[in-house]
Simulated assay, not measured.
Amino acid sequence: MPLFEIETNSHIIITWAEDEDAARNVVHEAYPHDELVRLTKRPRDTWVISKGALGLTNTTLDPCMVARECLNRSAGDKVNAIRLYRMETGSDLDQARKMIESNMVMGW
C-alpha cells in the first residue's frame, strides 16, 4: 500500500492509503475543515506535523516553498539552506532550522 504525504493549510499528514482518493478521505475524516494544498506519494511511516506548533501559520508567505527553494539552491546542504532561509524570511535560527529539517523529507 502506498504512503502519501498530504499538506493542508494547517497540517502535514503522512499516511498509508490504497490510492489518492483514499488519501484525500483520510484528510477529510480527520480534518474536515482543512483545505488540501498538496498530495504526494512518500516512502515512510505515518506522522503528522501541526504547522501551528512550528509557528508556520503566516499565510502571506508559503514557508514550505521558500524552504524547498533554499534546499534546492544549497544543493541539499542543510546548514547553507538554513542560512538562506534566514536571509529570505528574517526567521530566527531555531525557526529556520525547523523549516529546513521538516522539508528535507522531500529527498534532499
Rank of each mutant, 00 (worst) to 15 (best):
L3M: 15
F4E: 09
E5V: 14
E5G: 14
I6L: 15
I6H: 01
I6T: 07
E7C: 03
N9W: 06
S10I: 00
H11V: 04
H11S: 02
H11Y: 14
I12G: 01
I12F: 11
I12A: 03
I12K: 09
I13D: 06
I14H: 05
T15H: 09
W16N: 12
W16Q: 13
A17E: 00
E18M: 09
D19S: 09
D19W: 01
D19H: 05
D19A: 06
E20Q: 12
D21F: 13
D21Q: 14
A23D: 06
A23M: 04
R24T: 09
R24W: 11
V26M: 07
V26Q: 08
V26P: 08
V26D: 15
V27R: 10
V27P: 08
V27I: 12
E29R: 14
Y31M: 10
Y31T: 11
P32K: 09
P32E: 08
D34H: 02
D34W: 10
E35Q: 07
E35V: 04
E35P: 01
L36G: 03
V37P: 04
V37S: 05
V37Q: 10
V37K: 14
R38K: 10
R38Q: 00
R38L: 02
L39G: 00
T40P: 07
R42C: 06
R42L: 07
P43I: 10
R44N: 10
T46V: 07
W47H: 13
W47M: 12
W47A: 01
I49P: 05
K51V: 05
K51G: 05
G52I: 03
A53L: 14
L54F: 03
G55H: 01
G55L: 03
T57F: 06
N58Y: 00
T59D: 07
T59L: 08
L61R: 14
L61I: 15
L61V: 15
D62Q: 13
D62N: 15
D62E: 15
D62V: 04
M65V: 12
M65L: 14
V66E: 13
A67I: 00
E69F: 05
E69I: 05
C70K: 02
L71N: 04
L71W: 04
L71F: 08
L71P: 00
L71V: 03
N72V: 08
N72Y: 15
N72R: 15
R73G: 06
R73P: 06
R73V: 07
S74Q: 06
D77T: 07
K78C: 15
K78T: 15
V79I: 13
A81W: 03
A81K: 02
A81G: 02
I82C: 13
R83V: 13
L84R: 06
L84E: 02
Y85E: 02
Y85A: 10
Y85K: 04
T89S: 07
G90K: 04
G90I: 02
L93P: 00
L93C: 00
D94A: 09
D94R: 09
D94P: 02
Q95S: 13
A96V: 06
A96K: 02
A96Q: 07
R97Y: 13
R97P: 05
M99D: 02
E101I: 08
E101L: 13
E101M: 12
S102C: 10
S102P: 00
N103G: 03
N103H: 01
M104C: 03
M104E: 08
V105Q: 05
M106L: 11
M106C: 06
G107S: 03
